[in-house]
């Protein structure tokens, strides 16, 4: 554990809490892509099956349980409790276009052909692109609520911090995981446009609106 990873994990946790609080406080999931949240639930479910097989640390296990529980809680709020506010008309990204390539890629490029390893690899690839339905939704409506943009920023910053952590680990432990690094870089690049608009607009107190 190093400071970059810890900050990354904290950003990830903040993102999830911000999203849950936003939906809970406003009693609405308007502007939130349920499809991205389905993909994230799938990411955590496939990655954290190792909860049953391997023990890393208390921190590790607790965080995994929090990520799993909060992702299903988010799905419950979107698809059950506040279903009436779910903006399904704008959430039209076809997730099979992400799921199928991720399945194929994880069968082609993996560290090991064991079930748990294949699920982990799939989860890494899927996480890299899981935000696309949400970004698609923002681009379709041309705007995002300020709180939604805070959520997206924290979620993007998490993987960006992981990249710094991987560089640090490469030099201190000579450890590098090619699959996680390449997927993590792609994941961060997908947020780049958003980061730019967030920094130039939202942090200056303006609304998050895409240029016409």
């Amino acid at each position: 554990m190093n400071i970059f990873r810890l900050l990354g994990d904290i950003c990830h946790l903040v993102a999830i809490i911000v999203l849950l609080l936003k939906i809970w406080k406003t009693r609405s999931c308007a502007g939130i892509s349920g499809k991205s949240q389905i993909l994230f639930a799938l990411v955590y479910t496939t990655r954290y099956v190792d909860l049953f097989f391997t023990y890393v640390s208390l921190y590790n296990s607790v965080m995994k349980v929090i990520f799993l529980a909060s992702s299903y809680a988010t799905l419950y709020l979107i698809y059950v409790k506040f279903k009436a506010t779910y903006d399904f008309n704008h959430d039209t990204f076809r997730i099979e276009f992400l799921l199928i390539p991720c399945v194929i890629l994880s069968l082609l490029i993996t560290h090991d052909y064991s079930p748990v390893e294949l699920l982990w690899t799939f989860s890494i690839y899927l996480e890299a692109v899981a935000i696309l339905p949400q970004l698609f939704m923002v681009s379709k409506t041309g705007e995002a609520e300020t709180i939604t943009s805070h959520y997206l920023f924290a979620l993007g910053a998490y993987r960006a911090l992981y990249i710094v952590n991987w560089i640090y680990r490469y030099y201190t432990e000579s450890f590098i995981d090619g699959i996680a690094v390449v997927a993590g870089i792609i994941q961060t690049i997908l947020y780049a446009d958003f980061f730019y608009l967030y920094i130039t607009k939202v942090l200056k107190g303006k609304d998050f609106k895409l240029p016409a």
């Binding site: 994990d9 965080m63 450890f175 995981d177």
Partner: peptide, 10 residues
């Protein structure tokens, strides 16, 4: 050098 699985990250 790419090393194999060591999934201590989240």
């Amino acid at each position: 050098e790419f090393r194999g699985p060591k999934h201590d990250e989240l």
